[in-house]
């Protein structure tokens, strides 16, 4: 078969959605490739060397921006690495090449739905959703958190800017949660 398969977003649509609810803007992102990178046991030196200048390796509970790769910490010795999907769809293969046998790399692009949240101040929305002290944590903060029984990653990019990664299969439930919470806050 030569013709390619068409892609659908986690919400089951051809294109990502965005929602404006009062001051809150929820933007689905469908243009990011994602892979997990885990340092192999005892290979920290080789791992750090391979990453240097290419893949940022932020501290626990942090994210770091870069080009083409950005990343955020998810577990001891493990990061999620992001890159533009259009140019890095096969991100896992690229990173395997980069890290060689110093890391275990796994494709994660389609394991997640990503929503970018924007407002003048996201705190009133996020305090209805999760226990992260959003106004207090620094820009670049990244953490797994629980939103209405859904395990998500939350990245703070500014007081009014955040990224949420939730499990792909729960995309509709997660969007519903965000919409309902936004409606109850405005």
């Amino acid at each position: 078969m030569a013709d390619t398969l068409h892609a659908l977003t986690p919400l089951g649509r051809p294109d990502p959605v965005s929602r404006d609810i009062g001051p809150y803007r929820i933007v689905e992102r469908f243009d990011v490739a994602l892979a997990s990178v885990a340092c192999r046991r005892g290979r920290h030196k080789d791992f750090a060397k391979a990453a240097k200048g290419m893949v940022p390796l932020p501290d626990p509970a942090h994210s770091a921006q870069g080009a083409p790769y950005s990343s955020f910490w998810v577990a001891p010795d493990m990061w999620f690495v992001e890159a533009p999907f259009a140019t890095h769809e096969d991100i896992a293969s690229e990173l395997k090449q980069l890290f060689g046998d110093s890391a275990s790399v796994t494709e994660q692009t389609d394991g997640w739905v990503r929503f970018d949240l924007q407002a003048h101040d996201l705190a009133p929305l996020l305090e209805r959703l999760c226990n992260v002290d959003f106004p207090q944590v620094a820009d670049g903060f990244a953490s797994r958190t629980l939103i209405e029984h859904i395990g998500c990653y939350l990245i703070r990019r500014g007081p009014g800017e955040g990224t949420l990664y939730g499990p792909r299969s729960s995309a509709k439930s997660l969007l519903h949660v965000l919409e309902t919470a936004a409606a109850s806050v405005i």
């Binding site: 046991r41 493990m78 275990s104 796994t106 692009t109 389609d110 394991g111 299969s169």
Partner: peptide, 15 residues
């Protein structure tokens, strides 16, 4: 604890 093993779920990543 000293085994060189890394784990990650990929349940949702693949149809």
């Amino acid at each position: 604890p000293d085994m060189d093993v890394q784990l990650i779920s990929t349940t949702e990543a693949w149809a």
